[in-house]
Design a binder for these strands. Sequence first.
RNA 1: GCGGGCGUAACUCAGUUGGUAGAGUGUCAGCUUCCCAAGCUGAAUGUCGCGGGUUCGAGUCCCGUCGCCCGCUCCA
Length: 484
Amino acid sequence: MEKVVSLAKRKGFVFQSSEIYGGLNGCWDYGPLGVELLRNIKEEWWKAMTYRDDVEGLDAAILMHPRVWEASGHVENFTDPMIDCKSCKARFRLDTLAEQISDKKKEKILKEFAAELTDNEKAELDAVLSSDESLSDKFTALLENKNLSEKLLAHTNCPNCGTKGQFTEPRSFNLMFKTFIGPVESNDNVVYLRPETAQGIFVNFLNVQSASRQKLPFGIAQIGKAFRNEINTKNFLFRTREFEQMEMQYFVKPGEDKKHYDAWKERRMQWYIDLGMSPDNLRFHDHPQDKLAHYAKEATDIEFLFPFGWGEIEGIHNRTDFDLSRHEEYSGKSMKYFDDQTKEKYIPYIIETSAGASRGFMAFLINAYDEEEVNGEKRTVLRFHPKLAPIKAAIFPLVNKDGMPEIAREIEKDLRPFFRVFYDDKGAIGRRYRRQDENGTPYCITVDTQTLEDGTVTVRERDSMAQERIHKSELMNYLAEKLK
RNA sequence: GCGGGCGUAACUCAGUUGGUAGAGUGUCAGCUUCCCAAGCUGAAUGUCGCGGGUUCGAGUCCCGUCGCCCGCUCCA
């Protein structure tokens, strides 16, 4: 991990944000090679997702009407009230605390707790207890009840150290960044930096559908930044507060959702494999039914094996008709699709594929990183798929004389309009090859003595280090073929 | 948010009981070089993360702060 972070900085893939001021927690900048890699990843995603007759593109604004986030559930649910045990410093989410206490213990706590309530409070308690929820859910409901939580917590033991009544007050963390429209900072003009790009797609569902004359099933794809004010950032680019998403929302007829969910799940996994990710480093993590988010019927993560363990790089969710129904409810505008085949009107189900561009970047970088021994020397090489490699080809004169630099410059000039190429005449040839290996450049083109005679050059392939001779006039086709 | 570790040149690191900084790699220039980090010569670069304090004097000791890594927690 440190090796990759260090290489990333040294070669210009990733720098820490605002480094000269001591850095900004969890924010990173993409350097010259990094931005190429990131753009290539996004470009490949865009091609895979929108060069289809059933998917349209979109680029929605980062700022949206605040009601969007009420409809989406983010204002209400995008918070996790937390409490800390003052005794052992353990931290708990209020809504999962009850699960960690035995039922027997809960009953005992409730009994003690009930004894010191006022009549009004008692009435609230009875209302909760008379529901037919499980004991854990009732307990959670009480903890989340503003009037009762303090007294209940006073009787509750820490699941970690057993100490009673040493909890801090519940503190809420809203994970959305707030800002203000216009110069006045008042509650009337609060807006949020979007915590996901998906909502920009949902609210434009009918706009895109009618403008593009699409029929179900069809999808809308979007790439863009999203922001979450995470409590703590972690693991280089993995958990950051500002990140980029590549999302596609596929609108389908209810009842056909399972079929499309399964199809997209396989398609998205294959995308990573086709771009050179080792299948050994990839897996699905299906969410168990009881852990699903409020909007999802079925969900899986595509996970990559990072140095710190398996981590999600893409989520595929069956979001049902939750989002569009909510927007219909909150906006008062119909979100229904008219199916002119069956003459039915309904709210479509949505299959979401939501990939993290920054996480994908990190995964592709780590997946590509390799060290091997060549002639007793360590060779560091980034084995990117040629489509993702920041630089596609490097061009070298073998030595700086006999007209070789001139020919090499000509080749550079011919290729540059079509490929990201790099010219280098500094130092020994071996050093130049190795430098390009560290950048992940798949092909190195070298002009040598034979070039002067017959116009052929050597092309050295990064992974095998094997060379082949081809005529310089064939280079364009050669590279185009390799990058197809 | 808690606990632990770390922060010195672009990178990896050294720096003796406090006396205002070094190495290797890399980079740059020149020579050499006909294919995998070769060789020779020369050069540039640090307010030692930041801010205070102790001291005649702090990279070194103390406090605070910021950042990174690891573990816990968390991850709608």
